[in-house]
Amino acid sequence: MEQILQYSLSGIATGAIYALIGIGFSIIYNATGIINFAQGEFVMLGGILTFFFLDILQFPLWGAIILAVTGATLCGLLFERLAIRPLAKATPINLVIVTIGGSILIRGLAMLIWGKDTHSVPSFSGDNPIAIGSATLLPQHLWIMGITLAVICLNKYFFYHTINGKAMRACAYNPRAAGLVGIDVKRMVLLSFVISSAMGSLAGIIIAPLTMTAYDVGVMLGLKGFCAAIIGGMSTGMSVVVGGLLLGVLESLGAGLISSGYKDAIAFIILLLILFIRPQGLFGKAETERV
């Protein structure tokens, strides 16, 4: 039973990543009403750009990380400008399909530029395991948990204490009314893409030392992040974080205690159950106006 601690700790570390990706989904959903299925590709870009700046252009680690976040954010910005904004009159389903197309395009370009090989990225501070009771963690796991926590706090501050954050929340409630009181809704949509691509790339960067990176890592991570967002009811706050952690821990426990063959199945069974039973999310109150 002492293994439970290890399963949980591993699960929390993975879950923190799912949470970061999940919040990215929620931010765009709240600003635009669409699910951005290219979210996973920004995660991939974060990891692979870090590799690119670090290994090929020989930047120091911190420089590479900053450049990678900047690069991925720029991609997010371009994506909104070139693929989302021109379709102003499109229905949400059109936009969702555009994001799927965008994700295939980004993945394909990454494959052409960086090849099909997997690349490794060094840990931020060594690989010597840290013992916690009978369980062990890597310093990188602490980085993951720390950075996730910091990002969530910043996120909270942004949405509740800054004028832009409040404006974005207003757009989420009612874009038309927000427009009427003078909020530039289009700018808020752009901002939502910028924030979520930055967060996605950050998630990709902090997990890359553990999982390595390749042009196609974004697909699965994106889907898991999407599960976390659904469990948390597409909010931008704590419930998605809890959703992500829950998913990570359940996956880890399931793989350890039941069977490793069902690891991915667990995530998607939870996703389906939530969609069937509590489509408003595990913690959300049923809202009638948001279908």
Binding site: Q3, Q6, Y7, S10, G11, A13, T14, I207, L210, T211, D216, V217, V219, M220, L221, E251, S252, L253, A255, G256, L257, S259, S260, G261, K263, D264
Partner: peptide, 16 residues
């Protein structure tokens, strides 16, 4: 035990 070709964390299996 098994793992998926795209899995990113095998520590549960290894803990077992």
């Amino acid at each position: 035990d098994t793992y998926g070709p795209k899995d990113t964390d095998m520590s549960p299996q290894l803990t077992k």
